Computed example of a mutant assay.
Amino acid sequence: MDIKEIINSLNLIYYEFDNKKNILIKDVNYTNKYTRLEFFKITYYLTKKNISFNVLKDKSINFSKSNSGIKSYVLSFLQNINNSKKNIFLLNDKKVKWAENIPLFKIIYKEKKVRLDDYDALIFTSKNAINAIESMNKDWKTIPSYVISEQTAKLVKELNGNLEYISKTKHGDEFAYEICDKLKGKKVLYLRGKEIVSDLINILQNNDVVCDDDVIYENKFNKEVKKKKIPKNSKIIFTSPSTIKYFFKVFSWDESYTAISIGKTTAKYFPKNIKPIIAKNTSFKSCVDTALSLS
């Protein structure tokens, strides 16, 4: 059993394995009781299996043989210089190291009451939906949540929600098929944005799941966004179909650019002349890591 198989078997949320660097990287945006429990879970299991590892300052876990201090510093310094020259653009306002933000949209929460009394489960395919329902009805935390990614799961845990299931595939339609059997005979509520691109609702309803949906937030073009020069050979990260639409409201495409798509669904919405590279995982960090891995 190799390291990657072991990591997958642990069903981690706050740690992501970097196969190239042979490091299990902790999400530095979260430091709570759940991250500590996950850290102890990992280190206990690795110790039990007699697998050698080193714990880094940020609680990431390194499986490679440690370099000497000076050599490690030099390698890290050179890598940082190389990363800083990549010209990576993330088309939202979320800060990720090595990426420059172009905030093309704003998230607007609906002003409404959402009743949750009759539902056995909630479905989330976006962190925005979780933040929105948190502002409307905190009772959502008592209902089992089925989520599409680790990023969404982290927020459920952070807000002390009831996390029931995380998708293995991370993509809309496939996620729906994953949870059909788990939700069969139950009444569920899909809390979502105004625009959706998957067929999740129909898939569930066609498989004996009573699925209602409620629009609780909206993604709107940011008219205040400032147009900036995007250099040739830049890597541009698109995190939803709307970012593709909004990008072309402001910018023109240069054939030297590389498009990074956060997932398979978003990738379907690019113009025919643009062939995006799909990130390994549906997280902004994974998108940036994908961009950094390109020459």
Rank of each mutant, 00 (worst) to 15 (best):
S286T: 09
V96W: 04
V156R: 09
K168N: 14
L90T: 03
N32W: 09
N32Y: 11
T243L: 05
K20Q: 11
Y146F: 15
I102N: 03
S149I: 07
S252G: 10
T152H: 09
S9N: 15
I262G: 04
I123D: 08
I230P: 05
K182F: 04
V156C: 12
I88N: 05
S135Y: 02
Y190T: 06
G263R: 05
K141H: 02
N11H: 15
E150L: 06
M1V: 13
V147Y: 11
L75C: 03
N273Y: 04
N162V: 06
I236S: 05
K41R: 14
N162E: 10
D2Q: 12
S66L: 13
I133D: 12
T35E: 09
I196C: 09
E38Q: 06
Y217I: 08
I130G: 03
K85D: 00
G172Q: 11
S9Q: 13
N162R: 08
T142Q: 14
P144K: 12
K85V: 00
H171P: 02
G193R: 12
E224G: 12
P271I: 00
S9H: 08
E224M: 07
K235Q: 08
Y73I: 10
S135A: 03
I148M: 14
S145R: 02
K59L: 04
T239D: 02
L292P: 08
N219L: 13
K65R: 11
D93Q: 02
V250L: 15
V74M: 10
N87E: 02
E100G: 01
S149N: 14
V74D: 00
A259E: 04
K21H: 04
N11C: 06
T142F: 14
C180G: 06
K235F: 14
I81G: 00
P231L: 01
K229V: 08
N32K: 07
K182M: 09
A99K: 00
K220V: 15
G172C: 08
S72A: 13
I277G: 04
S9A: 11
K65A: 09
K49G: 03
I179Y: 08
S167T: 10
K97N: 08
S286W: 07
D214C: 15
L10N: 01
L91E: 02
I108G: 05
S84D: 00
E218F: 06
S72M: 05
F221Q: 03
T282V: 12
P144A: 07
E255Q: 08
K48Y: 13
L294Y: 11
V250E: 10
Y109T: 04
N202C: 06
Y177R: 15
L200Y: 11
V250M: 14
N101A: 08
I262T: 02
K110C: 11
L104Y: 10
S256T: 15
D181K: 15
D58V: 01
K4S: 14
D214W: 00
V55R: 02
Y177F: 15
R36P: 00
A259V: 04
T43S: 04
K138G: 01
Y190C: 10
K275I: 07
K245L: 06
I166N: 13
